[in-house]
Design a protein around this nucleic acid. Sequence first.
DNA 1: TTATTTTGTTAGTATCGTCTAACTTATTAC
DNA 2: GTAATAAGTTAGACGATACTAACAAAATAA
Lengths: 222, 222
Amino acid sequence: MISHTEENYLKVLYNLTSLKGEATVNDISKQLDIKMPTVNSMMKRLAEKGLVVYESYKPLKLTDEGRKLAALIIRKHRLTEMYLVEKMGFGWEQVHSIAEQIEHIQAPEFFEKMDELLGFPKVDPHGSPIPDANGNIASDNYVKLSDCKVGDTVTFMAVQPSSEDLLKFLTSRDLSLGLELKIKQLEPFDGSMTISYGKKENEMLSSKVCDNLLVSKKSKKK
Amino acid sequence: MISHTEENYLKVLYNLTSLKGEATVNDISKQLDIKMPTVNSMMKRLAEKGLVVYESYKPLKLTDEGRKLAALIIRKHRLTEMYLVEKMGFGWEQVHSIAEQIEHIQAPEFFEKMDELLGFPKVDPHGSPIPDANGNIASDNYVKLSDCKVGDTVTFMAVQPSSEDLLKFLTSRDLSLGLELKIKQLEPFDGSMTISYGKKENEMLSSKVCDNLLVSKKSKKK
DNA sequence: TTATTTTGTTAGTATCGTCTAACTTATTAC
DNA sequence: GTAATAAGTTAGACGATACTAACAAAATAA
Ligand SMILES: [Mn+2]
Ligand SMILES: [Mn+2]
Ligand SMILES: [Mn+2]
Ligand SMILES: [Mn+2]
């Protein structure tokens, strides 16, 4: 009863609203590369279906039902990404576009099987949390690497957003999730950081890169 | 440039035409449970695209291009079924409906990876041949079990057509591909057969079942 | 505060994929 | 060989998902 297309709108709305709680027609339009009038009428349709709160000229919100549905699609997306990396040998930069399609498959047993074969993972290959089967998602308390200061030692937990180019760059620098990063230096002029990790000493990362790396500071809580 | 929907029509047309070389609007209509006028206009569209040969009131044929495209979709379907059974642990009766969706995924690397992980299989879990990457399909020379005679010893090679109910029945009788079947008896009244295989002695199979089991008679050629 | 720009909405159009009703052609039965 | 039936086609409709053009409201700049 909910189409492939509607699912993509819901998912984008979920991601956009997870920051400020609301999103605009314009945001969605840019994100999906679909013109505003199309988005507008889709939002009305989703409101009809009880998945979106729509009021003229006001920002959009998801209803509880809409949020749950979106989370379940994201669950399928992230389980798929994890499966592709862990069980099929794809690189973390290759899996998003495949998962973008597979997330729409209607076959609960398929995703349950993945979950089981993966040992019920909590995060996807980019460090984003996988919602549970009820659509509940764990909230992490990571911070941006760019918000850390010289002398900090932190653990690399997630890439967000995780563009293909960025993921390739990180791979080329042997930067993978779970590494301890020691912040050696911060260049005040451009915000670039010099860090050490694994076997690498004093690697330079631009502030744009640092903005997209999420880290946990100490207290590696279970 | 070819939609999910069009792909399903092509595939059905491929299967229907593989018997007599042609198929009717009515056949397709029944197979897909879509009304004849809809099928009719879709056939015209596919003819426009050069995939189908359409002439008013004449039976339908695939063009070479249409046949190749259909074979490539069937390739994705059958690789998926094999992957689901061999790598994910699904039963052979569970995989068709999942593959029916996954066959439409546009990601060549995904299916190449499956193929590789499976060791380039030649047949799907039901014994049907998997077309190669150019859309060429190996022709088997199997015969129906129901066309064999008492005293024959044959090898069980494929189930066709392979309905879920039939596959479940075969599983319940421990009948799996590759088994040697010894035909002990044929009941002239209803065509039912009594056969022995594996640890089973004198199992009775209805003629309807025997019609759907394909076997190779001797000369197990490579 | 007024003017300009950006954002959101309405109206009208198009294509895809489905339907029903009505008509035409082909096949089958008598 | 005609009558009845089945199969195929045409016409017209509809919902889904997109678009452009034109207009309205809100936000921003002057
Ligand atoms: Mn992703
Ligand atoms: Mn998607
Ligand atoms: Mn199948
Ligand atoms: Mn399909």
